[in-house]
Computed example of a mutant assay.
Amino acid sequence: MNVEYINPFVETINNILATMASMTCEYQKPYVKPDDAPLGVVTGLIPMAGDTVRGSLAISFSEGAILMISSLMLGEEISQLDDSCRDLTGELTNMLSGGARKLLWEKGFDFEMAQPQLLFGDDLVAHAVNGPVLVIPFETKAGPFFIEVVFSSRLDRARVIAG
Score class of each variant (00 low, 15 high):
residue 1 M to N: 11
residue 10 V to K: 14
residue 10 V to R: 13
residue 13 I to A: 00
residue 20 M to C: 11
residue 26 E to K: 12
residue 27 Y to C: 03
residue 27 Y to D: 07
residue 28 Q to C: 07
residue 28 Q to R: 15
residue 31 Y to G: 04
residue 35 D to Y: 07
residue 35 D to G: 07
residue 35 D to W: 11
residue 38 P to R: 00
residue 41 V to L: 09
residue 43 T to W: 00
residue 47 P to D: 13
residue 49 A to W: 04
residue 50 G to C: 08
residue 52 T to E: 15
residue 53 V to P: 02
residue 57 L to I: 14
residue 59 I to Y: 01
residue 59 I to A: 01
residue 61 F to H: 03
residue 62 S to W: 05
residue 63 E to Q: 15
residue 67 L to T: 10
residue 68 M to S: 14
residue 72 L to C: 12
residue 81 L to M: 10
residue 85 C to P: 03
residue 86 R to D: 00
residue 86 R to A: 00
residue 93 T to F: 02
residue 95 M to I: 02
residue 96 L to Y: 03
residue 98 G to V: 09
residue 100 A to N: 05
residue 100 A to S: 10
residue 105 W to T: 14
residue 109 F to Q: 07
residue 110 D to Q: 13
residue 112 E to H: 12
residue 113 M to G: 13
residue 115 Q to P: 06
residue 116 P to V: 01
residue 116 P to D: 04
residue 120 F to C: 10
residue 121 G to M: 03
residue 121 G to A: 09
residue 124 L to E: 14
residue 124 L to K: 15
residue 126 A to R: 15
residue 127 H to G: 07
residue 129 V to L: 10
residue 131 G to I: 08
residue 136 I to H: 05
residue 140 T to I: 05
residue 142 A to F: 04
residue 143 G to R: 06
residue 144 P to F: 13
residue 146 F to K: 01
residue 147 I to R: 10
residue 148 E to K: 03
residue 149 V to Q: 10
residue 150 V to F: 08
residue 155 L to N: 13
residue 158 A to P: 04
residue 162 A to S: 04
